[in-house]
Design a binder for these strands. Structure first.
Lengths: 341, 341
DNA sequence: CTTGACCCCTAGAACGTTTTAGGTCGCGTG
DNA sequence: CACGCGACCTAAAACGTTCTAGGGGTCAAG
């Protein structure tokens, strides 16, 4: 062990024992005071606080969790590029804090898979996890559910170990189709979510609504990102068969649709109407204002947190096995208008 | 302690000792095997792996970090509603993983302040933190920097305890102004970032560039979000004094500007040109395609991680005290065009 | 046969907390 | 005076890991 030891450990942070020594009391007492527990004299209490502040003491959450045997931690897996997930996270923080839980985020990115994201949540000893729009296989989700309380958000999956919170997707697409039909549209295409969570349900909702109106459904492969909407429009243009209305899988996808239509000199909503899904708070600012199906992120987040905590505290509420369904509504903005053909 | 003890602890997860017992070896050996360290016979290695898998053992990262005296953790504070921050996070994960560090995210939301976000990073015993576009006071940032290695991203702040990574904002706004002037614009307004990080530098860059061209600068109060751009345009309209070009503080702000212009029947870029800043990967999909000043999020993330780790390993590189500057470039898309007045 | 080197393994301490079980004081009461 | 009680405090054990120090083998060399 030489002086220039490579990979030097970082400076030691100040600990409970440091504070105790400096204040001339036991670590147990410092612990009491820091937690605001009763059983310390006002004099000592004040002294400990003063010393702790002087030394810049911050309790080590890991040691605390380790000793307590529980972390009070709620893990959240989300996709970092999805604006809707950002809205959910806001809500999760709020609800978790109110319930006395901490939140640990684990992002999915191009280079970081869902497996890895979930793996770190397990290693962090979360007491429950909330998976936002997971794309993993049903089997893997079920395995996670078998390990610890798991709430799945915005995805249809039925399994006794998984608690699901989602929007009424069928209903949502029904609203959108009704709106467009009301405006006189008959050639309405659905740019779907391909293999994305809940894409299947939205396709079903679209087909059912079209059938209800006696219209021919037409589905073009899309996805959850801008690029997918963009490519779908390119395909439609290449086929020379543009509909009068496009129903996109979600807001980012709708954005891609709008972008490529605009670039191709096709005006919205005069020539083509476009509808999104989610109503991320960005949707209202897409220049024209995107007409979209709103699913309330805050409400979904609260439901998810509520369920996660119920599961942790083992109140074996049968309600947990039923899907928590949020009713969507249609927000009409500038990207839809009367059919002119 | 009755049976129906409220607040039941969550089910105990399987531990090193469980695996050891089941496999008939010591915990030390299991630890060895799990870490892939040398010193175990092939037979035992295989047996331990098998048992660990059977029991679904996942090492407890907290206990591990506690014992090792270091967490290998990089904390990142970011604003959850900023698309640019999402881009940064992608890069941070990638760079950190390559360097053998883990990442812990701490989001700032409407209901969760920067103080709180930083506080949890401290409690999690991160070895270094990366603060993305912090809005906190210089003093508070300096205090954080005094506690542990701190890299500040996308904000101008000079302090010996803070390492800064940022874009050349002056240069960036210069590029934008030059571009607009080249298109014939003379009445160019800057919708600024108000008190946002680096807003001051961008104002300076704007003023300098305008002066260089002998033009009268005009700054309208904005902010980092869509709503701010929107309100700025409303103000300009109310004053009945619309310029021919608007330079927004960042992409979301530019989006707000575009949205409100469009809603007011003003066409872009025919009547007004608009330029953003950041080039989040959303910018290319804003219907028309936003002309914007690109700052490379990936490169900034890599620089930030590199610096954070240098600081942790106490290579006292004087380079760390110099700002890490990324050179921005202009991405011309559809929101800027020749001046027609 | 001793020695030492090597390989495989384990006991036990440590990390920074919380918690349990108890200890010491001062004081009012029987 | 003895006793009990409450208020305040502390020693020491845990939590799940990693790591240090060392224990027992086996085997080759002296």
């Amino acid at each position: 062990m030489t002086i220039e030891d490579a990979g030097t450990a970082p400076a030691r942070r100040t600990t409970l024992a440091d504070v105790a020594r400096q204040a001339g009391v036991s670590t147990a007492l410092v612990s009491l005071v820091m937690r605001g527990a009763p059983g310390a004299s006002p004099a000592n209490r004040e002294k400990v606080f003063r010393v702790a502040r002087e030394l810049g003491y911050v309790p080590d959450s890991r040691a605390r969790a380790l000793r307590q045997g529980r972390s009070q931690l709620l893990g959240v897996m989300f996709h970092v590029q999805q604006p809707f997930h950002a809205d959910v996270i806001e809500g999760v923080y709020e609800a978790a804090e109110a319930a006395g839980y901490d939140v640990v985020l684990s992002a999915v990115t191009d280079s970081r898979s869902e497996d890895k994201a979930i793996g770190t949540l397990l290693a962090d000893r979360c007491e429950a996890v909330i998976l936002v729009a997971p794309q993993s296989s049903r089997e893997w989700l079920a395995e996670v559910g078998g390990r610890l309380p798991t709430v799945v958000l915005v995805r249809h999956v039925r399994h006794p170990d998984l608690s699901v919170v989602r929007a009424a997707d069928m209903k949502g697409l029904g609203l959108a189709v009704d709106h467009l039909v009301g405006l006189g549209h008959r050639r309405i295409v659905h740019v779907d979510g391909a293999g994305s969570p809940s894409a299947e349900q939205r396709r079903r909702g679209y087909r059912a609504a079209m059938a209800r109106h006696g219209l021919e459904p037409r589905i073009v492969r899309g996805g959850w990102a801008e690029i997918n909407g963009s490519q779908a429009v390119e395909q439609l243009l290449a086929e020379g068969d543009l509909p009068t209305a496009i129903l996109a899988f979600n807001d980012p996808c709708a954005n891609g649709v709008l972008s490529t239509l605009q670039r191709s000199g096709i005006s919205v909503p005069e020539e083509v109407s476009v509808v999104g899904f989610d109503d991320t708070h960005l949707a209202g600012f897409s220049h024209i204002g995107l007409t979209t199906v709103r699913q309330d992120a805050g409400q979904m987040a609260r439901m998810a947190v509520g369920r996660a905590i119920s599961l942790v505290e083992r109140k074996d509420d049968p309600e947990m096995h039923r899907d928590g369904v949020v009713v969507p509504d249609l927000v009409v903005r500038g990207t839809t208008g009367p059919c002119r053909q």
